[in-house]
């Protein structure tokens, strides 16, 4: 059986939900080895938190990871990949994951596919391109199949993992140490779910006029993450990390509620693949209605509080 590597995806020191999704995708193609890269003293807790179909863990602790960033991660992974020659390497699709994947592809002479939303047993990846309007199936034809997979697109098998653990010592090559990180400020996670992992996302745009209370109210009633259009993040009404769209995050939740958002093509690019789309907008002609399963033509300041009340009433 072929051997598939996944890079354990971390949020701070916590194992993200995406890790089990990567393992689930990897298990379709072969036996899964999970690579844990972390600071000295931190790997044991990470390994014990792993779930999903993982048979082996390769764990490397290094001080250089935090100091040198992406190139250091890519360098260590490239060393293991060159040594163990897996058939595929799966990494979470975000800025950090994609850059690592790109560097490992160069170091190991391999092809790369980014932003896959599904992977088949034969290594064929499904991607949604052009803002989700087109489905593409593609496959890597050279070297290790390096693929980055979008969070929240593969249904994870989260069975308890009881892998064999190999603790490996490796050092980062000098060429990967050219950048020095002097300070790191992780984004503090609020009480709400992570945008790309959430089952429900409620987003606000220019129509909120800077007042996100109604949007947040509905989000909290639904247990949802809060998103924003670029108009809202550019205006400083909501942090850039919450921007949905081409230059923000791509989300594909079960439910996306767009409030006071017109539906520009760059916004749709980040949410078009949501399973169900609900819209509240006072302009009946707004293009966002074209992709809505349910749309309310109305003022969000009137509609959202009523909806929030209704959700709370049904839940209690």
């Amino acid at each position: 059986m072929s051997n598939v590597f996944i890079l354990v995806d971390l949020q701070g020191d916590a194992v993200s939900k995406t890790t089990a999704e990567l393992a689930t995708a990897g298990a379709r193609m072969g036996d899964v080895t999970a690579i844990v890269l972390t600071q000295p003293g931190k790997s044991a807790a990470i390994v014990s938190a792993l779930t999903g179909p993982i048979s082996t863990v390769i764990s490397i602790e290094s001080e250089d990871l935090a100091t040198h960033g992406v190139p250091a991660y890519a360098d260590l992974i490239s060393q293991i990949v060159t040594e163990k020659k897996p058939s595929a390497l799966l990494i979470a699709s975000h800025a950090f994951g994609k850059e690592i994947a790109g560097r490992v592809a160069i170091a190991t002479d391999s092809g790369i596919i980014t932003d896959a939303v599904d992977v088949a047993a034969d290594g064929t990846a499904t991607q949604l391109v052009f803002g989700g309007s087109t489905t593409v199936h593609s496959k890597i034809s050279h070297g290790v199949s390096i693929m980055t997979i979008r969070p929240n697109t593969i249904e994870a098998n989260t069975a308890t993992a009881s892998p064999t653990v190999e603790n490996v010592t490796k050092s980062v090559s000098d060429v990967a140490k050219k950048v020095r990180i002097t300070a790191t400020q992780p984004f503090v996670k609020g009480g709400r779910p992570e945008l790309t992992e959430a089952n429900i996302v409620v987003s606000g745009g220019r129509g909120t006029n800077g007042d996100f209370a109604a949007v947040e109210g509905l989000a909290d009633a639904l247990g949802a993450a809060v998103g924003a259009s670029r108009a809202a993040t550019d205006a400083g009404w909501y942090p850039h990390t919450h921007q949905v769209g081409q230059t923000g995050k791509t989300v594909s939740p079960q439910l996306y509620v767009a409030c006071g958002i017109s539906g520009a093509i760059q916004h749709r690019a980040g949410m078009q693949t949501s399973k169900t789309i609900v819209v509240v907008n006072k302009d009946a002609e707004a293009p966002i209605f074209d992709i809505a399963d349910f749309g309310v033509i109305g003022d969000l300041f009137a509609v959202l509080p009523k909806a929030t009340e209704g959700v709370i009433a049904r839940k209690s």
Binding site: S110, G111, I112, I113, T124, L128, V129, G132, S133, T134, T135, V136, H137, S138, K139, I140, S141, H142, G143, I277, A284, F289, D290, I291, A292, D293, F294, G295, V296, I297, G298
Partner: peptide, 20 residues
């Protein structure tokens, strides 16, 4: 090194419900 096997436009979303 990555070969496209096939591509197809995704079916348009079915028209939704719209209320005022």
């Amino acid at each position: 090194w990555s070969l496209v096997a096939d591509s197809a436009p995704r079916p348009a979303r079915a028209a939704g419900i719209k209320v005022t």
